[in-house]
């Protein structure tokens, strides 16, 4: 037994044991300190119960879908929620927009801007403008239509629009016919 425990074996063994203990400790801690993903953001756009689904790999031109959820509201309507980081536009950097769509039809049920991107001027989006979009089918969103989310800050509204275009493309690819 002593013959096997040469200095080099001792070295490697010590390292391996330390590594195993560390990894085990971290694995336990990882489970203990688990933070469940926060879906309250979606409920702010449209009140419902949501569960996370896998984000499909879709080629998107104007942004990224960071999180996708599906759910159903009190009337049993099937919903799709998208947590979108839009590509910026000009001086406005990426906007994080939450959009909730009806799963079967693609009608926008609710949306709001979670995080406005940094831009040259302070920008307060007009919530009522976004509310007007509710009831429109996401397929009918015309990219870069300035009437849509206009506040006078053109770059920022285009950046927000990019989020809707992203939702349009994603919905069409994943849920469309």
């Amino acid at each position: 037994m002593k013959k096997i425990l040469t200095p080099s074996v001792k070295c490697v063994l010590t390292l391996v044991i330390i590594a195993v203990v560390c990894v085990a400790a971290l694995a336990i801690l990882n489970d203990l300190l688990y933070v469940p993903p926060d879906f309250s953001a979606f409920s702010n756009a449209y009140e419902a119960e949501y569960d996370q689904v896998e984000v499909a790999d879709v080629a998107l031109t104007s942004g990224k879908v960071l999180l996708a959820v599906e759910g159903s509201d009190s009337q049993g309507k099937q919903l799709v929620g998208l947590y979108i980081e839009s590509a910026g536009y000009g001086k406005a950097k990426a906007f994080t927009v939450i959009i909730v769509l009806e799963k079967d039809t693609g009608i926008i049920l609710g949306s709001y801007i979670k995080e406005q991107g940094s831009s040259a001027a302070p920008y307060d989006y007009d919530e009522s403008k976004l509310a007007v979009l509710n009831g429109t089918n996401v397929a009918d969103i015309v990219p870069k239509d300035p009437e849509m989310v206009v506040t006078g800050a053109t770059h920022s509204s285009y950046a927000v629009m990019n989020a809707f275009v992203t939702a349009q493309e994603y919905y069409q690819a994943v849920y469309g016919e």
Partner: peptide
Amino acid sequence: IPDKVRIPAFILIIATFVTVVKM
């Protein structure tokens, strides 16, 4: 800890605690 592997062992231990702090 044998002297020859002390630096890797230290780094391993430190890395573990940094991960703990992060979590």
